[in-house]
Amino acid sequence: MTNPAEIPLLRVRALHKHFGTLHVLRGLDLEVPRGEVTVVLGGSGTGKSVLMRQIASLDTPDSGSITFDGQELVGLGERELLPFRRRMGMVFQGSALFDSLTVLENVAFPLRQHSDLGTSAIRERAMKLLVALEIDHAARKLPSEISGGMQKRTAIARALALDTELIIYDEPTSGLDPVVSRAVDDLIRKTSEDFNVTSLVVSHDIQSVLRIAQRVAYLHEGRVLFWGPPAAMLKSDAPQLRRYLEAAGV
């Protein structure tokens, strides 16, 4: 009998997605092991963000299967998806913080919506997350008053507010300078370890991938061309992947 811990937290099978005549995902398969940082790597237009949207149930695939903790997500109604959404957090490319709420209120938002905690308990919990992510000093600031890196930290804190098991990061280092990018990478690894969450990161930043990934899935033309540890990726002789790595200077 299979140990439940060995079953991947997320499993994608034969996923297809069209936009009109454009066939973006072409029978994509992917596994995201529990507790690890898996990075989906690929060039522009290879379907990375589309894949994230399907996994986060923001969009519906044309066919295929997405299972989370062994349970099928494709075909579920909004109501049935709610418990799964609470177990997944998402950090968007632009952070997607609510601009009318302070940093603290942003982190407290999911708790206000889904927990029975009182106002002070919610504040306390949100503040703990801000302390853990070293952004408590900006608790009363609005998102527009803080830097991109701090916005990312806030978004991660918000994603962790509920009982999150999987955090999906969409291009977390895009638009950030190398120093902040490195800090965000460290934060992703640290968050994964400290909070024992599985991370799925979409990126085209190869340096970032090599820093944080325990598994890499290289996407090419809507399919996973390579899946494995970063060290194995560097030794891969798949011509498309080699071209990508050489272009990235690796």
Binding site: S57, L58, R85, R86, G89, F92, L97, D99, F109
Partner: peptide
Amino acid sequence: TAQIDALWTMA
């Protein structure tokens, strides 16, 4: 700015 998508992801 994907705030509506963020609402979906927060159930």
